[in-house]
Computed example of a mutant assay.
Amino acid sequence: MAESDPLSEIEFLARSPNRIEVLAALAEGPHTRRELAAAVDVSQPTLGRILRDLSERKWVEKGDGDDYRATATGRLVATGMTDLRDRLATETELREVIEWLPTESIDVDLTRFSGATITTPTQTRPNAPIQRMLELLRETDHALLLSHAFNEQKLRLIHDRTVDGDLTTRGVFGEEAIDAIAATPELRDVLADILAAEDAEIRVSADEIPVAVEVTDDRTHLLLRNDEGIVRASLDTADPAVREWAERIHERYWQGGRPVTTADLDG
């Protein structure tokens, strides 16, 4: 076949998702035509054309028997294309919230957020991101909390669950969050009860906290705000790499913070 440039080869694969699927399947191991047709769900005539096109590029070859397999360059191309496809799929998912995602503070590949649950406000549920956060807190036995702010609904839920002994939590919050609670008598009493609970520890950080993140039993949850501090979305995932990042950043601020005491609540 005539020599081609890389963009033309990308276009060749992108025009037919089946080409990518066949190449990816063969990169994983040898397949017969029957196995390929079943795995990719294409007809034999279509599969024949795909194998011919891939063979012309020396990306696949026929083995001694009925098997087809990917060549070394075929495996190279398959890895690159499937990686690009996965990255673009993640980008498409995150596109609606990326402007509020604090990427400069997240030292984990964004592909780890693929398949994350994204919750945004709607006309009928304007508070949907907060409600998703509360839902996860209701379902967990343990929670790590990190935020510059303290939502009242969240504060009261943590109060009820920690006072009843249903939740073990370690939270780090910004000074402004604690000051705002201390200035509100009814919330001051709520936080005082939390501080007295056996399985709750709250610390305050003098440093600016760049993310609002929670780690529960099964999910890592981020609350996304705009520059004015308005909640615009939430994102949660079960990905272990995201969880490890969240635990690291929580530990960093936990070690740098100081315990909140009743003296902090004196009005």
Rank of each mutant, 00 (worst) to 15 (best):
A89H: 07
T90D: 02
T90M: 11
T90L: 04
E93N: 09
L94S: 07
R95Y: 08
I98T: 14
E99T: 00
W100I: 11
W100P: 11
W100G: 11
W100L: 02
W100E: 05
L101S: 05
L101Y: 04
P102N: 00
P102M: 00
P102Y: 07
E104T: 14
S105G: 04
S105P: 01
I106V: 14
I106L: 13
I106W: 00
I106A: 00
D107H: 04
D107C: 01
V108I: 05
D109N: 04
D109I: 00
L110N: 04
L110Q: 03
L110M: 08
F113C: 02
S114M: 03
A116D: 07
A116K: 06
T117P: 01
T119P: 03
T120Q: 07
T120L: 12
T120M: 10
T122I: 15
T122S: 13
Q123R: 15
Q123F: 12
T124K: 03
P126N: 10
P126V: 09
N127Q: 14
A128F: 00
Q131R: 15
R132S: 11
L134K: 08
L136Y: 06
L137A: 11
R138G: 10
R138W: 08
E139Q: 05
E139S: 06
T140P: 08
T140C: 02
D141H: 08
D141N: 04
D141P: 00
H142L: 01
H142V: 09
A143W: 07
L144Q: 13
L144E: 01
L144C: 06
L144R: 15
L145C: 10
L145Y: 08
L145K: 04
L145I: 14
L146E: 09
S147F: 13
S147D: 12
S147E: 08
A149P: 03
A149W: 09
F150Y: 13
N151F: 15
N151R: 14
E152I: 14
E152V: 15
E152Q: 14
K154R: 14
L155N: 06
L155V: 06
R156F: 01
R156T: 03
L157T: 13
L157G: 13
L157F: 03
L157I: 03
L157D: 15
I158N: 01
H159L: 08
D160Y: 05
D160M: 02
